[in-house]
Amino acid sequence: MKHTISVLVENKFGVLSRISSLFSGRGFNIESLSVAETMDTTVSRMTIVTRGSDQIIEQVTKQLNKLVDVIKVNDLTEEKFIDREMVLVKVDTEQAVKRDEVLRIVEIFRCKVADVSSKAYTIEVTGDEGKIKAIVDMLKPIGIKEIVRTGRIAMTRGSKALKE
């Protein structure tokens, strides 16, 4: 099963490699990973999406907790949460008809065109997994030249916050 795990870590060099080697050393795969500073600049927050049986996920969270630089681990999958990802898609628009089609899709999905050139439009889209998949599926037949994704970020619903 897929799990989305939030991890608060000390914002120091080497921490990311400790986390990633924890996964690689056990043959666990990371599906996506995103990291950045939090309000407190000494703390970074990671969102890790991974897959595994309950036993593997239990090991993963325990092992994460065991790392000295890890402050807090929360498997969001156990509660209600929202997740978002941003994607930039460069679409081939050499033919005029394609431009119209791309613009229509952009409007339907309420995303935006971040960059325009004579031969390509770059679409910026933010959404959950379903939305991203849907728009990518729509753009594929038109011709995707390049795609880049930020990886998932996630947060629990409601007023509760992940604190140290």
Partner: peptide
């Protein structure tokens, strides 16, 4: 050496 020993130390510092 910090990189080499990362999987076999409890913690390490540079």
């Amino acid at each position: 050496i910090v990189g080499i020993t990362r999987p076999c130390t409890k913690h390490s510092y540079l």
